Structure formats: C-alpha cells, structure tokens
Amino acid sequence: MTPARHDNSSKGDYSWWLVALAVIALALAAVIVSSEIYTEVFTIVSAGIGITILVTLLGFSLATLLGLCIALMALSGSAWLRQIARFYTEVIRGIPILVLLFYIAFVGAPALVALINFLLSPLISAGTMEPVLVRDLSLMWRAVMALTIGYSAFIAEVFRAGIQSVDKGQVEAAKALGLSRFQRFRLIVFPQAIRVILPPLGNDFVAMIKDSSLVSVLGVADITQMGKIYASGSFRFFETYSIVAYIYLILTIGLSLMLRRLEMRLRRGQRG
C-alpha cells in the first residue's frame, strides 16, 4: 500500500507545481499584452524564436546521429575503434561549448573550406567551378556544427549506457537463433535500450535549447541576439532580458512536460 500512496503524492505534487507555473505564465502573458513596452520587446525578441528552434533541431539531430556512431564504435569488437571513440568523447566533453563554438567558427570552418578546395582543386583548376570561400559557410551553420560536435560526445555516452543496459542473455539468444548483428540491434537491443536512453536524451535536448543562446556571440539572430540588439539600443535591460528568460522558460518547460508524458507512456507500455 505504501508505494501506491507515494505515487499519488507524487502526482499531487506534480499537479500543484504545474498549476503554479501556469498561473505565473498567464500573469506574465497578461503583463506583456497590457504593457506597450513589454509588447514591443516581446515582438522584437520573439522574431528570433525560429532561428533558435532551427539551430536546436539541426544541431540535436546531427549530434544524435554522430553520437550513435561514436557509441557503436565504443562498443565494437575493434580495440582501435574503441580507443578512437574514447579519445573523442573525453576530449570533446572537456572543452566548454563556448570555446568549441569559437574554435569551429574561426578555425574549423576555414580548415574545412581549405580541405574542400583541395579535394575539388582539379575542377577549380579546369575552371569548371569557383573555389569555395569561407564566407560561403554561414555563421549559423558554423554554430550548428559546434553544437553537433559538442553534444555528440555526451549523447554517445547516453547511447552506450543504454545499449549496455540490455541483458546480454537476450542478445546471445538472438545470436543463437541466427539473427544478424544488425537484426539483433534493431529487433532486440534498441527497442529495450530506448527506454533507458530517452530520459537523458530528452534532458540533452532541453539543455541544447538553452545552450543555443551561445550562438548569439557569432551574431546569429536567435532569441538572445535579438534581445541584445534591442537592449543595447533602448537601454531597457530589465524588460528585455525578462522577456528573453520568459521565452526560454516556455520553450524548455513545455518540452520537458512533453518528454515526461512520453516517458510515462513508455513505462506503461513496458509494464503491459
């Protein structure tokens, strides 16, 4: 009986927390609508929501794919691949995202352009195509590259831990039935691992929404950059950054609630 009372208590606490949050959000929304200043600030700052969401979706999708590849390397039978994966995750996780952002934008991007021009040098020499310029690689895509590399190391560890949580006996049984390595991963390992992977993966997604604000240092017109531009011209720092914080809270908490609901559905499916 005790576990049941604990579950009901948790649901009650969750409901009160959500109600309090909704009341605060509605109160702030009323202030924004009723105040000309806040309405103006919100209109200008919200113009960067699209870029924030785009950078986050692109960065997280690419980071997830790269992280999965790194995780599979870390779990492979080749000692060389395991060492390369370990080296990558340890180095990347030790570099702050902001430093990585500057490095990719001003060092990595020119090096990538130089490599592309080197590979295409026969076509460039023949006059078939023009050389690629550094400015052709937009600052937004440089920011996406930095977020991809930075988060892929953390996501790789999430995938690795989730895959290793699957009972090895089931994998051995699938191998005995003649399933290929890919079939074992697709039919046995991944469906079970995703229940372990999803919660921390969702946390990384929420964290990337917040860390996407760092792209403003490159001048990318996201929420934070639009707020910086308006505040520097109007000197309304309190109003501007209050709106910036409000928008980020709506995005992150809304996404957290969606992920929590999805996690609960997966748990119910597992019990069923």
Rank of each mutant, 00 (worst) to 15 (best):
A30G: 10
Y246P: 11
L65M: 05
S216D: 06
P110M: 13
I223E: 05
A27W: 11
I163G: 01
G67T: 02
A143S: 12
T43Q: 10
M264V: 06
G219E: 04
G127M: 06
P131R: 14
A126Y: 03
L255V: 11
Q192T: 08
F190C: 07
L21G: 15
Y246F: 15
A20D: 00
S152F: 03
A173T: 14
K175M: 09
K11C: 06
I243F: 07
N117Y: 10
R86A: 01
I223V: 14
L112F: 15
A20N: 02
E130C: 01
P191H: 08
R195P: 09
W141I: 06
P122L: 08
L21S: 15
G162I: 04
S76R: 01
M264P: 00
A30H: 08
G269H: 13
Q183L: 08
I209D: 02
F238C: 03
G94M: 00
E239D: 14
D222M: 07
A47S: 13
A114H: 07
I243L: 07
K168W: 10
F182K: 11
A174R: 11
R271Y: 05
V189M: 02
E263V: 06
V206A: 12
I194Y: 08
T128R: 10
S125D: 06
D7P: 05
G162S: 10
Y230F: 15
L251I: 11
V23L: 15
R271D: 09
A173D: 11
L100F: 08
L75V: 07
V171S: 06
F106G: 12
A79Y: 00
F159A: 03
A153K: 02
V206L: 08
W141V: 05
A143D: 03
R184N: 15
T240Q: 02
T52G: 13
G127E: 00
V113F: 09
L139F: 12
S61L: 15
F238N: 05
R260S: 14
S216C: 01
F42N: 06
K168N: 11
I253H: 03
E40N: 14
